[in-house]
């Protein structure tokens, strides 16, 4: 067993874990943060996406001990109290989900896109940078619109798009 100490959604947590414990299992089983989903478990679908020091990563392909000393943000840490984050609100507004299983990962990836493209965002970039997230319901159109609207509502200029 090794000790892991990390900050999750602003709160400090420490636990003794086996080195082989995946970050996603630590979040779900140890901290009961079940908003982060395990979809494919093979680092392809992105449902397990969380932020590590502000950057999206796949928590099914990372050991909890690798996050020792780092800041993790999960979907539970995005909203402010009962007020949805603008990106979450945009997913609701644009019908960016159907079954909802991929949605936590989509939102976390969308926030990564906004961080990387503060100066301007277009539809092609959104589609390209959602490559690490799979949705089997929506056909992506609503998701792409949601990311653009969420980005717009976060103050990002949107280029060449009818959607937002």
């Amino acid at each position: 067993m090794v000790k892991v100490s990390l900050t999750v959604n602003g709160s400090a947590h420490s636990a003794e874990v086996e080195p082989r414990t995946l970050l996603v299992d630590f979040l779900r089983a140890h901290l009961s943060l079940t908003g982060t989903h395990v979809g494919c478990d093979t680092s392809q679908c992105g449902a397990c996406t969380v932020h590590l020091d502000g950057k999206p990563v796949k928590s099914c392909t990372m050991l909890a001990v690798q996050a020792d000393g780092h800041q993790v943000t999960t979907i539970e840490g995005v909203a402010t109290g009962k007020d949805l984050h603008p990106m979450q609100a945009a997913f609701r507004e644009c019908h960016g989900l159907q079954c909802g299983f991929c949605t936590p990962g989509m939102v976390m990836s969308a926030l990564g896109i906004v961080t990387r493209h503060k100066d301007g965002l277009d539809e092609a970039t959104v589609r390209h940078e959602l490559e690490g997230n799979l949705c089997r319901c929506t056909g992506y159109h609503g998701i792409v619109n949601a990311v653009l609207l969420g980005a717009k509502n976060m103050g990002v200029p949107i280029k060449d798009s009818k959607a937002a």
Binding site: P56, T61, G112, E129, G132
Partner: peptide, 9 residues
């Protein structure tokens, strides 16, 4: 390479 999440790690 890969996708944004993979490129971050």
């Amino acid at each position: 390479i890969g996708d944004p999440q993979v490129r971050n790690r």
